[in-house]
Design a protein around this nucleic acid. Structure first.
Lengths: 195, 195
DNA sequence: AAATGGTCTTGACTTATGTCAAGGCAATGT
DNA sequence: ACATTGCCTTGACATAAGTCAAGACCATTT
């Protein structure tokens, strides 16, 4: 059932195994919600009451600037967390939207329940610690890419690092994620092919 | 003395107060090291054995590309942590350099000692958790800036967010941090003045 | 089956930013 | 005091990427 994906993820990331009691505790803190393709989990101005764990599906988080242009800040797939952490932790209105790109099953948890789990479930606590390490390394790499590589280099790097993204997100959103226009991405891909 | 800065930081971030025993435990895990201006804490190819806490001073972390150009990935000042976390956690050779921009006092800790402190010192554990929240929000903001703002907007945003950087780091490194050339930054600053 | 809307491509043109080169100024070392 | 070096500015030119517009191709809805 739905929670198995989360248990597997926790056991794998933490390296610890979960007994029935810990599983029950964890399951009691998350509630399951199904989203349809194009449905929003969060909209600009909302406060992010939940962080979501993706059991199945895909989502994107993006902002909209004054000119109405969208900027994709992150993508998320199975076994990823999705939320605006700034809003989630500080209870401030978010500047972002989170939209499902496919029919998606999420497990949702509030900040308060998350704090409780961090205290009471060693596997959960350790998983979050491991995940933070991984994420901080990855975001550092992305910042480095953004400031030091050309659009073409960033695209090839993305293809290598997250090939799933290319399969599951349309090209104009990939372009937005890379910080370039869809036209530029189209040309980059055609140049690459010719060689 | 040297460790007071760290204790103050931990008490403030965690909201917990440290008794003599916890202070002694923490102090036993860090060693103090003084660096002179221009001295390196880490060089490309090294493994980052330590993470540093800056008691006094300033540092930059940067990479060098094939053309020999430097790219500043981050700056750090008093009460900031500095390390290549990817190398530190995975014991892989780093692609970065960390150089002191001023005479700097650091408190250094190994990964193993850090794990032990996370287990044994509640204030340390809570501080790291709080810090992770703060950092993940800040890096998300920086990624958003890099992909969606012009060079000029990014500069003004930096001036507002980290005015200390402008005071303490030379302009060519600020430019590198923003992902633009020193010439472009010079022109941006002069345009701004005229208005 | 036709209509609609979204997605990608391509061409022509514009604009932001980079590159190269030279000179000035201030800090630093000898 | 002088030489050296690093840092910043400015101009001329080059280039990467953005913008606008049109058309092709699909998938989805009616």
């Amino acid at each position: 059932m739905m929670y198995e994906a989360l248990f597997n993820y926790l056991e794998e990331k933490s390296g610890l195994s979960l007994d029935a009691e810990e599983k029950a505790l964890i399951a009691s803190k998350f509630k399951h919600k199904h989203f349809r393709r194009r449905q929003y989990m969060l909209q600009e101005g909302d406060v992010a009451r939940y962080t979501g764990f993706i059991v199945k599906g895909a989502a994107r988080m993006f902002s909209v600037d004054e000119k109405g242009n969208e900027h994709v800040v992150r993508f998320a797939l199975e076994n990823w967390w999705i939320s605006d952490l700034e809003s989630f932790y500080h209870l401030t209105p978010t500047r972002y939207h989170i939209e499902m790109m496919e029919d998606t099953d999420l497990l949702l948890i509030t900040n308060q329940d998350m704090q409780e789990l961090l205290d009471k479930s060693p596997a959960f606590d350790l998983t979050v610690k491991m995940q933070n390490k991984y994420t901080s390394a990855a975001t550092q790499k992305r910042i480095h890419a953004a400031i030091s590589m050309t659009a073409e280099e960033r695209y090839h790097d993305l293809v290598k690092t997250y090939p799933q993204f290319i399969q599951r997100f349309p090209q104009n959103m990939i372009a937005s994620y890379l910080g370039i226009s869809p036209e530029t991405l189209s040309r980059i891909r055609n140049h690459a092919k010719r060689r």
